[in-house]
Lab assay of single mutants.
Amino acid sequence: DEVTIHLGDKTIRVDGLDKELLEILKELARRGADEEELRKEIERWER
């Protein structure tokens, strides 16, 4: 499953996201997290 996250004018595509992680990323994005913060969160989950 590829998920596309839209952040204002930026788009991040991620393969096979965990549903819980997806919810966390959506919440972070709502709070104004930037792409770098979201990537760090994704990397934390992948470990």
Results as ranks from 00 to 15, higher is better:
Arg39Ala: 06
Asp18Ser: 15
Asp1Asn: 13
Asp18Gly: 10
Asp18Gln: 15
Glu46Gly: 09
Leu7Tyr: 05
Asp15Arg: 09
Ile24Lys: 12
Arg31Trp: 08
Leu17Arg: 11
Glu41Lys: 03
Leu7Pro: 06
Glu37Gln: 12
Leu22Trp: 08
Glu20Tyr: 07
Trp45Glu: 02
Asp15Gly: 13
Trp45Ala: 07
Glu36Thr: 11
Val14Lys: 05
Lys19Ser: 13
Ile5Gln: 04
Arg39Ile: 08
Arg30Leu: 12
Thr11Gln: 10
Glu2Ala: 12
Thr11Asp: 12
Asp34Val: 06
Leu38Phe: 10
Leu22Val: 15
Ile42Pro: 00
Glu41Asn: 04
Gly8Phe: 02
Lys40Glu: 07
Lys40Pro: 00
Glu2Tyr: 13
Glu37Phe: 06
Arg30Asp: 07
Leu28Lys: 05
Leu22Pro: 00
Ile5Tyr: 00
Asp1Val: 11
Asp34Ser: 15
Gly32Met: 01
Arg30Ala: 15
Val3Ser: 13
Arg47Pro: 14
Leu25Ala: 00
Lys26Glu: 09
Ile12Gly: 03
Val3Lys: 12
Gly16Thr: 11
Leu21Val: 03
Glu41Thr: 11
Val3Leu: 12
Lys26Pro: 00
Asp1His: 12
Glu27Trp: 01
Thr11His: 11
Ile24Gln: 05
Glu27Val: 02
Ile42Gln: 03
His6Val: 14
Glu46Met: 06
Leu25Ser: 00
Leu28Ser: 02
Lys26Ala: 10
Glu43Val: 03
Asp15Met: 00
Arg31Ser: 14
Ile42Arg: 03
Leu17Lys: 09
Glu20Asn: 10
Asp1Phe: 09
Ala33Tyr: 09
Thr4Asn: 12
Asp15Cys: 11
Thr4Arg: 09
Arg13Met: 09
Val14Asp: 03
Arg30Met: 11
Leu22Asp: 01
Thr11Ala: 12
Lys26Met: 14
Asp34Pro: 11
Leu7Gly: 06
Arg31Pro: 01
Val14Asn: 03
Glu37Met: 10
Leu17Trp: 10
Asp34Gln: 10
Arg47Ser: 15
Glu36Ile: 11
Ile42Asp: 00
Gly8Arg: 04
Glu37Arg: 11
His6Tyr: 00
Leu22Ala: 06
Asp34Asn: 15
Leu22Cys: 05
Arg30Gln: 12
Leu28Tyr: 01
Arg30Ser: 13
Gly32Val: 01
Glu2Leu: 14
Ala33Gln: 02
Lys10Ser: 12
Lys40Asp: 06
Glu35Ser: 08
Leu25Val: 03
Asp1Gly: 14
Glu20Leu: 13
Asp15Lys: 15
Lys10Tyr: 07
Lys19His: 11
Leu38Glu: 00
Ile5Asp: 05
His6Ser: 14
Trp45Asp: 01
Glu20Val: 14
Glu27Pro: 00
Glu2Phe: 12
Arg47Glu: 14
Thr11Pro: 08
Leu28Thr: 01
His6Ile: 13
Ile5Lys: 04
Val3Asn: 14
Gly16Tyr: 11
Asp18Val: 11
Gly32Leu: 01
Trp45Cys: 04
Glu37Thr: 15
Gly16Met: 11
Trp45Gly: 03
Asp1Glu: 11
Thr11Gly: 15
Thr11Ile: 14
Leu17Thr: 08
Leu25Trp: 00
Leu28Gln: 02
Leu28Cys: 02
Ile24His: 12
Arg44Ala: 11
Thr4Gln: 12
Asp15Phe: 00
Lys19Thr: 11
Glu36Ser: 11
Val14Glu: 03
Lys40Ala: 14
Thr4Leu: 10
Arg39Glu: 03
Lys19Tyr: 10
His6Leu: 06
Leu38Pro: 00
Gly32Asp: 02
Thr4Phe: 09
Trp45Asn: 04
Arg47Gln: 15
Asp18Ile: 06
Glu43Asn: 07
Thr4Cys: 13
Glu27Arg: 07
Val14Met: 09
Leu21Asp: 00
Leu21Thr: 01
Asp34Ile: 04
Glu20Asp: 12
Glu20Cys: 13
Glu43His: 06
Lys40Gln: 08
Leu38Val: 12
Arg39Phe: 08
Glu23Gly: 10
Asp18Tyr: 06
Ile42His: 01
